Amino acid sequence: MEKKSEKSKAPDSVQEVDSRIAAVRDLIFGENIQQYNSEFDDIYSKIKALKEQNQKNLSESVTNLENKLADLESLMEHKFQDLNDDLDKRLADLDDEKADRRKLGKALEKIALMLQE
């Protein structure tokens, strides 16, 4: 029975020593720890704000790029339509009975040059 009572006293003494150490630590470093905690809180809030700003900038950049790609796609479609219309017009201008190969060749060369631009 004595062993049990000795074991039950040991945790109490350990807790008592821990609380004394905590009290001494708070007396010695209390102000510094509060200052450090305050500085860490400031740093964490700044990191959070920067993260949110970066996320916002990224989403705006993605939206901007998507809009520019849509504009480019529209421009390319318009350009191809113009080229098709030009080719149709030039082909219609050619005489049905006698196709002038030189005119057709020049028209195709012009279209090729426009596609390379």
Rank of each mutant, 00 (worst) to 15 (best):
residue 64 N to C: 10
residue 34 Q to P: 00
residue 112 A to G: 05
residue 22 A to G: 11
residue 63 T to W: 09
residue 50 L to N: 11
residue 101 R to K: 06
residue 100 D to K: 00
residue 83 L to M: 02
residue 10 A to F: 13
residue 40 F to Q: 09
residue 92 A to R: 12
residue 45 S to T: 10
residue 68 K to E: 00
residue 13 S to Y: 14
residue 7 K to M: 04
residue 81 Q to W: 01
residue 61 S to W: 12
residue 109 E to W: 09
residue 97 E to K: 12
residue 76 M to E: 10
residue 67 N to C: 08
residue 66 E to D: 02
residue 95 D to H: 01
residue 53 Q to G: 04
residue 73 E to K: 07
residue 108 L to E: 04
residue 93 D to K: 03
residue 60 E to K: 04
residue 41 D to R: 08
residue 19 S to R: 15
residue 7 K to Y: 02
residue 55 Q to C: 14
residue 98 K to H: 03
residue 18 D to V: 14
residue 59 S to D: 13
residue 56 K to C: 09
residue 30 G to L: 00
residue 61 S to H: 09
residue 85 D to T: 02
residue 90 R to Q: 12
residue 69 L to A: 04
residue 55 Q to S: 14
residue 62 V to P: 00
residue 73 E to A: 09
residue 101 R to E: 01
residue 47 I to K: 02
residue 41 D to C: 07
residue 106 K to A: 15
residue 86 D to F: 07
residue 5 S to A: 10
residue 86 D to K: 01
residue 20 R to A: 09
residue 108 L to R: 02
residue 28 I to E: 05
residue 76 M to I: 07
residue 25 R to T: 09
residue 28 I to S: 06
residue 72 L to D: 04
residue 48 K to F: 13
residue 50 L to E: 14
residue 61 S to M: 07
residue 29 F to T: 12
residue 62 V to H: 06
residue 31 E to C: 00
residue 13 S to E: 15
residue 71 D to S: 02
residue 4 K to N: 05
residue 84 N to P: 07
residue 104 L to E: 00
residue 22 A to I: 08
residue 2 E to F: 14
residue 88 D to S: 13
residue 36 Y to I: 15
residue 78 H to Y: 10
residue 95 D to Y: 01
residue 7 K to D: 07
residue 49 A to D: 08
residue 5 S to Q: 10
residue 41 D to Q: 07
residue 80 F to E: 05
residue 39 E to M: 01
residue 70 A to N: 05
residue 72 L to T: 12
residue 18 D to L: 15
residue 89 K to W: 02
residue 76 M to C: 07
residue 61 S to C: 06
residue 30 G to C: 00
residue 112 A to F: 07
residue 41 D to I: 12
residue 102 R to L: 08
residue 9 K to S: 09
residue 99 A to V: 02
residue 11 P to G: 14
residue 3 K to H: 13
residue 26 D to K: 06
residue 92 A to K: 08
residue 70 A to V: 03
residue 54 N to L: 07
residue 16 E to I: 10
